[in-house]
Design a protein around this nucleic acid. Structure first.
Ligand code: SF4
Ligand code: SF4
Lengths: 135, 135
DNA sequence: CATAAATAGGACTATATTAATCCGATTTAC
DNA sequence: GTAAATCGGATTAATATAGTCCTATTTATG
């Protein structure tokens, strides 16, 4: 179970954006966080599509959070960037039901893992991270 | 963050093995759990290499747990099959240190995620799963 | 109005990992 | 001797990641 650089980069960039507290272009973030510019663009497009950030085109444009950092959880960020959370085939998306689900001894474990991760990440906000608050 | 079928298959197979409580060939498990035989072989070889199971060659041979199911945690299984746990580049393996580690606002999050997962999976034993104990 | 800075998005590539499959060798109970 | 099993190496196909590149569009500012 590995976490992609997309998540690492994305989180760092969002924390940066939260610290800025105003509109900020990807070029600035890429430079200051030492991240590949083109790739970061893609990440921000993805975050925008998911509604987490807003964009302004043109000179002096850039991105900004679409709601206060206090109302953005790490779990939301993670879900957007990482795609699917930990979850067994039988859980989560699109009712991929498994014929073995009844009485399956493994299912509970994957369920618990998913719940645990969601709780852990759901309780941390972007504001917490930006403030370097101990989580 | 996706979990591989290797983990799903492996856990199911190990629970099966724990329920059997005696030597059991992969052919039987593959058949009864409806898993691809050749792939399951590889999974068992990996588990053996890691010392989690023992093998007996030849007719009437197969695999068995190398210690009581009560002393095997889901975390141990997961670590063997999934390879690396959730962890930031700056954490975990081989001191891949990051020049940004000092004062990094993201680091705590990844650390917490890793700790949380380890705690959750470390507290569940294969015996629990085999007994269908609610986790 | 021209320009430069920015987002938007499609296409492409390279690499790595997963999820197998296949083959041949070895061991061993019967 | 044979069949059932592990062992291990090689190979493959599909998928995801981690980018890169190019073009279009928008817009503040001189
Ligand atoms: S075998 Fe069990 S854990 Fe796996 S998909 Fe089916 S119900 Fe879920
Ligand atoms: S940027 Fe922060 S979280 Fe990422 S590797 Fe460096 S110290 Fe760790």
């Amino acid at each position: 179970m590995r976490i992609s650089t997309r998540s690492y980069y994305g989180l760092r960039a969002l924390v940066h954006l939260a610290k800025e507290r105003r509109i900020c272009p990807t070029s600035k973030i890429a430079k200051e966080e030492n991240l590949p510019y083109d790739y970061l663009q893609k990440i921000f497009q993805r975050l925008k599509k998911a509604g987490l950030i807003k964009s302004v085109k043109g000179v002096e444009g850039g991105y900004l959070l679409s709601r206060p950092a206090k109302r953005i959880s790490a779990g939301q960020i993670f879900e957007i960037l990482e795609g699917r959370m930990a979850s067994a085939p039988c859980l989560g998306f699109g009712q991929l039901s498994c014929s073995r689900a009844r009485g399956c001894s493994s299912r509970d474990l994957w369920q618990k893992l998913e719940t645990t991760i969601n709780q852990a990440l759901g309780s941390i906000t972007l504001a917490d991270l930006a403030a370097n608050k101990k989580v």
